[in-house]
């Protein structure tokens, strides 16, 4: 315990902890909308494209003689991820190519493009490793500021427009008939997903980004009854996995990104195992009213208009 408190005084650990916490809270917010739209793999597609963006940033850095070779890696990832996400959304919205096929193309193109471009920039695949698997230990002050700003944007859109985004994801046809700007809201989800991918890149790496968005939601929806509850619980699970994973890796020398994802999946497994117990408990104390209400009699006895 004293060792942990001691760690808290180390600036490197403080930065890593704050980055992990912020990402752990914001990634599941976006993930909730993705799961609702059955686009759980969107984050992976964007992550692969972001890798090409990282390499392109590297190329720009090399061409302009930037002080650090990777100075433009994150901006490159942001730009590529946003373009990729908007492209997927456009394809999906048109309904021409199946979203499934579009995602597959992005997977292959993104990784291959990244490796080719990093070679052109005079780098090696090793330079990409930090982005593929995350590098919490190298989060500097400037990185942290970028993470905080982008997370603030994600949370503002994801929580602020929660009901509108829910409406569009739940029933697009009805949402259109209410006059909601459906196209703009769909693009907003895509852009926010892209930002989430680039923010999470430093914490868990591009290959595991999607896990941080999806797994906490998968665990949460096993027990939650409402959309609101699903999102809240997913945020708690995400934050818990990120912080706990980071703490573990300061004691045992393991890659933080992978440990975080393994923990998240362990939480999912735990919830899945405990679910029948939880459901039984809930039925006993709160749901007796509900159980006694038969569907058939209910339909028949329904009231009419005022």
């Amino acid at each position: 315990m004293s060792g942990l408190l001691e760690m808290l005084t180390v600036p490197l650990f403080q930065r890593a902890l704050l980055a992990a916490l912020v990402v752990g809270v914001s990634a599941p917010v976006v993930g909730t909308f993705l799961v609702q739209r059955r686009l759980s793999l969107l984050g992976d597609g964007i992550g692969h494209v972001a890798l090409t963006g990282v390499a392109l940033g590297w190329l720009v850095g090399a061409a302009t003689g930037a002080a650090r070779a990777d100075a433009y890696a994150v901006p490159g990832a942001v730009v590529a991820a946003v373009i990729g996400a908007v492209a997927i959304e456009t394809v999906r919205g048109r309904g021409r190519t199946s979203g499934d096929l579009a995602l597959a193309l992005l997977f292959y193109g993104g990784i291959a493009g990244g490796v080719v471009v990093i070679g052109l920039a005079g780098g090696t695949n090793a330079n990409l490793m930090a982005y593929l698997f995350g590098s919490l230990a190298t989060v500097g002050t400037a990185d942290l500021v970028a993470i905080l700003v982008m997370s603030a944007a994600i949370l503002t859109v994801g929580l602020g427009l929660r009901t509108a985004l829910f409406a569009v994801s739940h029933d697009e046809e009805f949402a259109r008939s209410t006059g909601l700007p459906v196209g703009a809201l769909n693009i907003a989800v895509a852009v926010v997903a892209a930002l989430t991918v680039t923010v999470s890149m430093r914490v868990v790496g591009l290959l595991l980004v999607s896990a941080l968005m999806i797994v906490p939601v998968a665990a949460s929806q096993l027990v939650a009854r409402s959309f609101r509850q699903t999102m809240r619980l997913a945020m708690v699970i995400g934050a818990t996995a990120c912080v706990a994973g980071l703490v573990v890796t300061f004691v045992v020398p393991l890659a933080p990104g992978a440990v975080i994802v393994v923990l998240a999946i362990a939480i999912y497994a735990g919830v899945a195992v405990l679910r029948p117990v939880l459901a039984r408990a809930r039925r006993r104390d709160g749901g007796s009213r509900e159980v006694s209400r038969g569907d058939a009699t209910h339909d028949a006895a329904a009231g009419s208009a005022r």
Binding site: T32, V35, Q36, R37, R38, T163, A164, F166, A167, S169, H170, D171, F174, A175, T178, G179, L180, P181, V217, A218, Q221, A224, R225, S226, F227, R228, Q229, T230
Partner: peptide, 21 residues
């Protein structure tokens, strides 16, 4: 509306009717 993996209460669905441009 698609029944997706994310649960939503009937009330949450009804409140979406109050949104607009």
């Amino acid at each position: 509306g698609a029944v997706s993996g994310v649960p939503a209460t009937a009330l949450e669905v009804v409140t979406t009717g109050l949104l607009g441009r």
